[in-house]
Write a protein that binds this DNA or RNA. Structure first.
Lengths: 116, 116
DNA sequence: CAGTAGGTTCGATATTTATCGAAATATAGC
DNA sequence: GCTATATTTCGATAAATATCGAACCTACTG
């Protein structure tokens, strides 16, 4: 993917996250991990009607931020970790003007530890 | 800042980045570093009219992603690294279910090295 | 105190996005 | 096949956002 397409994708992904309900959904799925969560449970958790949530989930999935898998009548949604990483990498690309020590503390806080 | 306010801010910041011109501006400023760039030069670089760019810069500044400083007639814009970090941290918060090894490669790619 | 250059605000229009009920689709059980 | 459940698609309305010229500020310069 060249830089132009990466940018188009990133705008789409950021737009998908730039909405309260969708950001909540994404973060819940990030916390939930590979197990994921069922569409109905997500809608209930966020207290929005199923049709609205379906719309939001579709937006997140189109952006590549979540993936879905059907299991009989239920549909599991999960965060897409590789694309999440791509997005963060894209935003930080070429920061620090080649001097990593200039923003080393930017990365320092990005550990995967659970919050205290 | 509690989690609710953090979420409101994050939606705003992500929305600020979820637009082609603004994402370009932000990434240029990330690459440019502390020196920043003058408003007019940014507008010219992105090939948009000054009034449109002014609107976009104001959006980015309201979201805390860039800061501005006047130097006589010129206005310098810079990326706000601390808030950039806060945003990335917020997105990754509590990922991996407390098992950092599960997404260690998510961080692995987030070095500040210039692109090869 | 003009005149000029760099930026921003205003205002009006066009486009995109969010919302959610109703209807449609898919799967399972009887 | 009929019924119930889980979820999506449709459709229509309301709200937010992008765009850019014109007018307006602000700070230098002669």
């Amino acid at each position: 993917m060249d830089d132009l397409n990466a940018q188009v994708w990133a705008v789409d992904a950021l737009g998908a996250l730039a909405q309260e309900t969708r950001l909540s959904v994404f973060r819940i799925l990030v916390k939930t991990g590979p197990e994921g969560m069922i569409a109905g449970a997500i809608a209930e958790h966020c207290d929005v009607p199923p049709s609205t949530m379906s719309h939001h989930l579709a937006t997140l999935e189109r952006a590549g931020l979540v993936s879905s898998e059907r299991e009989s009548r239920l549909i599991h949604y999960r965060a897409d970790y590789p694309n999440m990483r791509r997005l963060l990498t894209f935003l930080m690309e070429d920061c620090c003007q080649g001097m990593p020590e200039m923003c080393s503390d930017l990365i320092a806080g990005l550990t995967c530890e659970p919050r205290a």
